[in-house]
C-alpha cells in the first residue's frame, strides 16, 4: 500500500509498504531516516521515539497505515522543529504544540533529511556539553522525549525528568549525565527568556 504523511515538515510518500509494517521501518528503510533507532521493536526501550501529531510515541508500535495524513517529527527534524517553536514566540517552550501548529510547520533547514546544516537544538547541544552521549544508540529517542517534556514543563524537577524519560533505556551512561543534560537545557532555556 501507499502511505502519505508529513515528516519533519515535508510531505512524504512511501510506496510498497507492507500492511503490517511499523512506522519505524518506513522511516528507516523506506524514507532513509535512520535517526530513530530500532533496538527492541516492542516498546520497551524508547530509542524509536518520534512525535505523532505532537505526541511522543514509540514508532515501532505504530502501524504505517495509521499515519496516513498525519504529522511526524523525528530526531532529524528536531533542531528545525525547536527553532520554529521558539520563533513562533514561545521561547520558554511552555506553550506546547497544537495540532494546528504541528501541521502548519514547514521545514526550513537546508536538509531536513539528515538534519545536517542546521544549528542544534538546545537539548541536543546540552547532551553534547554534558557528556550524555556514549554509544549514542539511545540518544535520538531521549532527545525527542526530553525536548517534548521541556516544551510542556520548562522547569522540571528531577522527578519530572525521570518520569518523562522512564520509557527510554540507556545501557551506557547510568543516566546521571542524561539528567545533567536535561537540567542544563532547562537552565539555558530559562536564561534565554
Amino acid at each position: 500500500m501507499r502511505v502519505n504523511f508529513k515528516v519533519n515538515g515535508r510531505q512524504q510518500e512511501a510506496d510498497d509498504v507492507w500492511e503490517g509494517e511499523s512506522l519505524l521501518y518506513v522511516l528507516r528503510e523506506r524514507l532513509g531516516l535512520p535517526g530513530s533507532k530500532n533496538a527492541c521493536e516492542q516498546g520497551e526501550c524508547g530509542s524509536c521515539t518520534v512525535r505523532l501529531d505532537g505526541v511522543p510515541v514509540c514508532s515501532c508500535l505504530v502501524a504505517a497505515g495509521q499515519v496516513e495524513g498525519r504529522d511526524i517529527v523525528t530526531v532529524e527534524g528536531l533542531a528545525d522543529f525547536a527553532r520554529q517553536r521558539s520563533e513562533s514566540g514561545c521561547a520558554s517552550g511552555a506553550c506546547g504544540t497544537s495540532l494546528q501548529d504541528a501541521q502548519d510547520w514547514q521545514a526550513k533547514g537546508t536538509d531536513s533529511q539528515t538534519g545536517e546544516g542546521t544549528e542544534l537544538s538546545a537539548i541536543q547541544q546540552a547532551f553534547i556539553d554534558a557528556g550524555a552521549v556514549q554509544c549514542g544508540f539511545c540518544t535520538p529517542g531521549l532527545l525527542v522525549a526530553a525536548d517534548e517534556m521541556l516544551e510542556r514543563n520548562p522547569n522540571p524537577s528531577d522527578a519530572d525528568i525521570r518520569e518523562a524519560l522512564s520509557g527510554n533505556l540507556c545501557r551506557c551512561t547510568g543516566y546521571e549525565k542524561i539528567m545533567d543534560a536535561v537540567r542544563l537545557a532547562a537552565a539555558r532555556q530559562s536564561e534565554a527568556v
Partner: peptide
C-alpha cells in the same frame, strides 16, 4: 497498537486484516 504491533513485529500473529 501497543499489543497488536508487538505481536506482528515478532511474527506471533499474521492477521488477514488489520
Amino acid at each position: 497498537g501497543t499489543d497488536v504491533m508487538v505481536e506482528i513485529n515478532f511474527d506471533h500473529r499474521r492477521p488477514e486484516y488489520l
